[in-house]
Amino acid sequence: MATHAQHKSDWRRWQQSWDQQQEWYMPDREERFRVMLDMAEALVGTEPRVLDLACGTGSITDRVLTRMPHARTVGVDRDPALLAIARGTFADDERARFVTADLSDPDWPAALPEGPFDCVLTATALHWMRTEPLRALYGQLAGLVREGGVFMNADHMPDESTPRINAAVHVFDEDRRKRQRDAGALDWGGWWRALAEDPALADVAQERFALFGNPAEVRHDHNNEEFQSAEWHAATLRDAGFAEARAVWASPTDALVLGLR
């Protein structure tokens, strides 16, 4: 049975802490969000109905509603702890709502309010899924985006054709993260350890650990074996029914792929 926080927490502080932890891994995180919102505005305007897919704490929702005050958002995720932060943060904002659903369940769209959506947006989340489940998900998303609407995914999308460049980037990033960790930055495991110590979130943290494992105790709780290139994502979106698809932003390790219905 799902548990719920019984104490008050500083939701905005947890949002900021999540951003800082994510930026430790991706210092260009805000840049990818900026391009994502630029493309959304260019293609569907400033009052979109947005599905924040695998929303976590609601990072995309936060940025959409800040930039586009007349937008409406629906966040969907399975993680009870991250959803608790999202729901706490936006508890008084009627523009945002959140639903619990498992994207690996073929019937997950049934948990959503009626579609279609102008935008489906996601960032640094779908790499949890292996190739074939992700292909199936893209097929479902084509049915959730209206004609002329967009899907965007900003995530790890390596180019295996450049091993020397990739190796140099890996060393550079590891050195940067070590310096920042030595200066007090929280990594993934450290962030979850701190979260579990918050009385308002201790119960949902344990619920999360029962579902996915405790990141403070296991080395990897992500898919670390199957990553797809930006070209794969674009081709798969076209195969799924999107009229056009391509990368609209890239870093040395990540990309933002846009599919237009």
Results as ranks from 00 to 15, higher is better:
27 P>R: 00
98 F>M: 04
44 V>T: 10
212 F>M: 11
49 R>N: 02
66 T>D: 00
231 E>C: 03
207 E>I: 04
205 A>L: 11
43 L>A: 13
174 E>Q: 12
134 L>A: 09
51 L>A: 06
31 E>H: 13
193 R>C: 07
148 G>Q: 07
156 H>F: 09
55 C>F: 05
100 T>I: 02
20 Q>P: 10
257 V>M: 15
14 W>E: 00
180 Q>A: 15
58 G>H: 03
166 N>A: 13
94 E>N: 07
140 Q>F: 11
167 A>E: 12
196 A>Q: 10
34 R>Y: 08
260 L>N: 09
114 E>H: 10
214 N>Y: 02
179 R>D: 08
83 L>M: 04
217 E>V: 02
110 A>W: 10
225 E>W: 00
221 D>R: 03
144 L>I: 11
92 D>M: 02
93 D>P: 03
66 T>R: 09
145 V>H: 04
205 A>N: 05
71 A>M: 02
164 R>M: 13
200 A>E: 07
190 G>V: 13
20 Q>T: 14
170 H>G: 14
38 D>Y: 01
102 D>C: 15
120 V>G: 10
6 Q>E: 00
62 D>P: 07
224 N>L: 00
144 L>A: 12
240 A>Y: 01
256 L>Y: 13
39 M>I: 03
161 S>G: 01
199 P>T: 04
255 A>R: 13
83 L>G: 01
122 T>Y: 10
64 V>I: 04
102 D>Y: 15
175 D>E: 12
10 D>N: 08
138 Y>L: 15
59 S>M: 12
32 R>C: 12
229 S>L: 07
85 I>Q: 02
90 F>V: 02
117 F>Q: 02
139 G>T: 11
46 T>I: 03
249 W>I: 00
116 P>Q: 03
242 F>V: 02
119 C>H: 04
75 G>M: 07
257 V>R: 15
29 R>H: 15
246 R>T: 10
162 T>G: 07
56 G>N: 11
182 D>L: 05
212 F>V: 09
20 Q>C: 11
217 E>K: 06
32 R>Q: 14
26 M>G: 03
88 G>K: 04
78 R>L: 14
245 A>N: 06
175 D>S: 14
115 G>I: 05
203 D>P: 01
236 T>R: 14
164 R>E: 14
39 M>W: 09
209 F>I: 09
19 D>P: 12
248 V>R: 08
4 H>D: 07
181 R>Y: 03
208 R>M: 12
239 D>G: 06
258 L>P: 04
60 I>F: 09
214 N>V: 08
257 V>I: 13
245 A>H: 04
42 A>T: 12
9 S>T: 11
255 A>Y: 06
167 A>W: 00
103 L>A: 11
253 T>I: 12
32 R>E: 05
238 R>F: 03
180 Q>I: 15
116 P>K: 03
197 E>A: 15
131 T>A: 06
41 E>Y: 05
9 S>A: 10
87 R>E: 00
253 T>C: 11
90 F>L: 05
17 S>Q: 14
236 T>N: 07
88 G>E: 01
139 G>A: 11
20 Q>M: 10
96 A>W: 01
5 A>E: 09
89 T>C: 03
49 R>M: 03
199 P>D: 06
132 E>G: 05
141 L>D: 06
11 W>N: 14
47 E>D: 03
44 V>R: 04
147 E>D: 08
248 V>N: 08
260 L>F: 15
